[in-house]
Nucleic acid binder design. Structure first.
Length: 803
DNA sequence: AGCACGCCGACT
DNA sequence: GTCGGCGTGCTC
């Protein structure tokens, strides 16, 4: 093959295509699709992904590939195709899709350096530049003092200096030096005699190797013999020792012990769920399973046993978990069962550690990856099963380009490898549950907890009642009593303040009425500027009322309280209680999260107070009370999924209480106790919630009945941004079917970002034959504007948060 | 993206 | 007549 088509490392509209390069003879047969190469591009050098080889090209002036960047392909055939599919279905650049599949450490760095050209006469160069070169090697363009820029440019023109473009990978492999003797012990003893008398250090080193003739880490040697490195160098020169560079992995779990566990006996219910999975595994067929099982029903054990079967057949497995740095227990369970076959990928690792875990997978040293969203791109060749745990978690959707959902990628890969995909959750997304109801996915249900412990009793407290009774505090009397009771018994409590988002809704403290949009079934957002209430979905806005439109009370105001204020109030009310507060402020430093949780686990505190982050994966035997301070904050966010998210959160947090011997209790404080999300969560009744919520989704044309697309337009000029958004809406009305609804334009929930004004419009559609084409044409239509006037268009297909 | 090319005003 | 400012368009 004479030519290679390359996707070049420039994420831009004009370069989002294939560039053909000639394959020089020296690389013939070496260059393969999926490899990264360094290619000349204009006057620079860039990396690019080879996507295909061919013998013909339409380009008259093809340049040759400069060099290889990887010795072997980093993307296999499947991942190359997956990248193309990703860029098509999420409307991102090809290069962006490819890069998303590799660890960030493998991104390339471009270094621009100045060096004297080969023909240059150094003595002709100006003094200041010459001295700069004498100090050492080429000068980096970035560090060049501004005083020298003009001179350097002049000398480049004169041909005395030239610019060198270098390409490097951000993260290097970690190498360590091993030293070992080249000679057998008796010859070493002989050498000892021949050394000069004053070479004490060298003698000492040789003696060391006589005693321990095995290879040793250079650093370990210098630990036992101070200053040995110079002596070692001399001995290597003499041919007595030799050194060897060995590549090592940075192992984040190096010092942790994982006692081995064996498969547990399955309950009848677990066996029944396991059967169809095993059947598909045996037939090597693809199928998506939705495993809907209450908290504690033993989903993980089913995952483990299915994986065991897959690994025994010599195949690989991917397990996605929401964010495992938060749940070390999860890693523990997999490592304990499968040992060193497990690679772990999550955001708590450094980029170097992620790189090393990736390479373990790439080299087939790991057969199972447990990781967050991006682990779905693990470079396996022979996948036997893919599992997505806590399927409903929003973190599976990437919010930057490529805006993919890990579930979609999992199903793509599952089809490719003809293997089962398991989605597991106690509170599945409506999308997945609806698909299971329709038979698109196979539903597996686990209704019983493994240890037969009952689900905790949930009390709903009406905070309006509290106010009427003169209690203006954040703590209801019920919660206060139960907290002091636990304190007396020496048991622990968890308090959750679910405060998400910055936008505040307006609520009447007297009757609990929340002011909503008459067109969207979404609460209105308070805007301090102009004292207005606005809908983030449609154009509706209204003035901030001074009295509640329902009951006429003056106790109407916007909501939003911080954990800090609650901690203060807690200290005032129960001064003897020891409180650990967990929020963004107290956990921003690395390791703090685990440290605080460990402290709580060691019973160094009575109450754990925190935001969302404490809802997941906590498992402490002495926690017998969970309090949700205000269930409403999330319920009234201007997001059609707020009911679903509230139900999920309440169900999840309820699962934190009474997991072991002691029975648990949950107190949910709310101003809207009658809301079905809260009522049904307290009854642990997902299925009724599902039916109720589906009715709402149907009548307001939301997913899963309709698909959504969110288009965000940004421009430094607010009027321009609004105008373009308006035009885009009209364009779409023209080109999409009558079935599609186009809402907006409205100001984006973050109306101004980085000095750019943002407007958005939303499309609701059922089926659109030419959807991708229409959206691509839309991009092209505004191309001129985009480059000329600094306009930016963002399209999110199936957005998760509209906030 | 980033770089060359090209056209304009300001200065030696 | 040259230097350097930024708008425009291309990169196999």
């Amino acid at each position: 093959m004479r030519y290679a088509s390359v996707v070049v490392d420039v994420p831009a509209k004009g370069t989002d295509k294939l560039f053909d390069y000639e394959i020089p003879n020296k690389f013939a047969g070496v260059i393969q699709p999926g490899m990264r190469v360094i290619v000349p591009f204009g006057s620079r050098k860039l990396t690019g992904f080879v996507v295909q080889l061919k013998n013909e090209t339409d380009i008259d002036s093809v340049k040759p590939i400069h060099s290889l960047f990887d010795p072997e392909p980093v993307l296999n055939h499947e991942l190359l195709e997956l990248g193309a599919w990703l860029s098509e279905t999420t409307l991102c650049y090809k290069i962006t899709a490819f890069q998303a599949m590799l660890p960030a450490a493998m991104k390339t760095r471009y270094i621009k350096e100045i060096k004297p050209s080969s023909s240059a006469q150094l003595e002709n160069l100006p003094e200041e530049i010459r001295t700069a070169f004498e100090k050492g090697g080429p000068l980096s363009w970035e560090d060049l003092p501004s005083s020298l820029v003009a001179v350097v440019q002049k000398e480049i023109r004169n041909g005395n200096l030239q610019i060198d473009y270098r390409v490097e990978q951000k993260q290097k492999k970690r190498l360590v030096k091993y030293v070992k003797p080249l000679l057998p012990v008796h010859e070493l003893e002989e050498q000892l005699q021949h050394l000069p008398a004053r070479a004490h250090k060298q003698k000492e080193v040789i003696q060391f190797f006589i005693d321990h003739p095995n290879p040793i880490l250079l650093t370990e040697l210098t630990n036992s013999i101070q200053g040995a490195s110079i002596a070692v160098k001399a001995l290597i020169k003499k041919g007595i020792l030799t050194e060897e560079q060995v590549e090592i992995y940075r192992d984040p779990y190096e010092h942790k012990q994982f006692p081995r566990t064996k498969p547990l006996p399955l309950t009848d219910e677990q066996k029944r769920a396991m059967e169809p999975i095993l059947d598909k595994l045996n037939r090597h067929e693809h199928e998506v399973f939705l495993m809907y099982g209450v908290t504690g029903s033993g989903k993980t054990e089913i995952y483990l046993q299915a994986i065991e079967k897959v690994l025994n057949e010599g195949k690989e497995a991917i397990v996605l978990v929401p964010e495992i740095s938060l749940t070390p227990q999860m890693v523990q369970r997999f490592k304990s069962r499968f040992g060193s076959q497990v690679a772990v990928l999550h955001s708590g690792l450094s980029s170097g550690e992620k790189f090393d875990e990736w390479r373990k997978i790439y080299r087939k040293e790991a057969k199972l990856v447990v990781g967050a969203r991006s682990a779905i791109f693990a470079p396996f060749q022979n996948i036997g099963i893919i599992i997505i745990d806590e399927e409903h978690e929003t973190s599976y959707k990437q919010e930057e380009s490529p805006r993919y959902h890990a579930r979609d990628v999992a199903i793509y890969r599952g089809k490719y490898h003809q293997c089962p995909v398991i989605l597991g959750s106690a509170t599945p997304t409506l999308e997945s549950f609806a698909r299971a109801q329709k038979g698109v996915y196979t539903l597996l249900t686990l209704k019983e907890r493994v240890n037969r412990r009952p689900l905790p009793e949930v009390h709903i407290v009406d905070m309006r009642e509290e106010l009427r009774n003169g209690n203006r505090s954040m703590f209801s009397r019920t919660l206060f009593e139960k907290l002091t009771d636990r304190l007396k018994k020496g048991e622990q409590s968890v308090l959750l303040l679910n405060k998400r988002g910055y936008s505040s809704f307006v609520m009447c403290r007297n009757c609990g009425h929340v002011i909503g949009c008459p067109h969207c079934d979404i609460s209105l957002t308070y805007h301090r500027h102009g004292e207005k209430l606005k809908c983030h979905y449609c154009q509706f806005e209204t003035a901030m009322p001074s009295r509640c439109p329902e009951c006429g009370s003056e106790h109407i105001r916007f909501f939003g309280t911080g954990t800090q204020r609650i901690e203060e109030e807690l200290n005032r009310l129960i001064p003897e209680a020891r409180v650990i507060r967990m929020d963004v402020d107290t956990t921003s430093r690395k390791g703090m999260h685990e440290k605080l949780l460990n402290a709580f686990g060691e019973k160094k505190a009575d109450i754990l107070l925190g935001t969302q982050m404490i809802a997941k994966g906590l498992d402490f035997p002495d926690v017998t009370l969970v309090g949700v301070l205000s269930a409403d904050t999330m319920l009234h966010l201007p997001d059609f999924r707020s009911g679903e998210k509230t139900f999920q959160l309440l169900t999840q947090v309820s699962g934190r209480a009474g997991r072991h011997e002691l029975p648990g209790e949950v107190v949910i404080q709310t101003y809207t106790p009658e809301h079905y999300s809260i009522q049904l969560a307290s009854l642990h009744d997902f299925e009724t919630f599902y039916r109720q919520e589906m009715k709402m989704r149907k009548s307001f044309a939301y997913p899963p009945y309709y698909f959504l697309i969110l288009i965000t337009v940004s421009h430094p000029n607010a009027i321009k941004a609004a105008e373009v958004t308006e035009k885009i809406g009209q364009y779409l009305k023209l080109h999409l079917s009558n079935e599609a609804q186009i809402l907006g334009p409205v100001s984006s929930p973050i109306p101004k970002m980085k000095d750019r004004y943002r407007f958005q419009c939303m499309i609701k559609y059922k089926r659109e034959k030419n959807l991708y084409r229409t959206l691509k044409l839309l991009f092209e239509h505004y191309e001129e504007d985009m480059s000329q006037t600094d306009l930016k268009l963002m399209i999110d297909l199936n957005p998760y948060t509209i906030l």
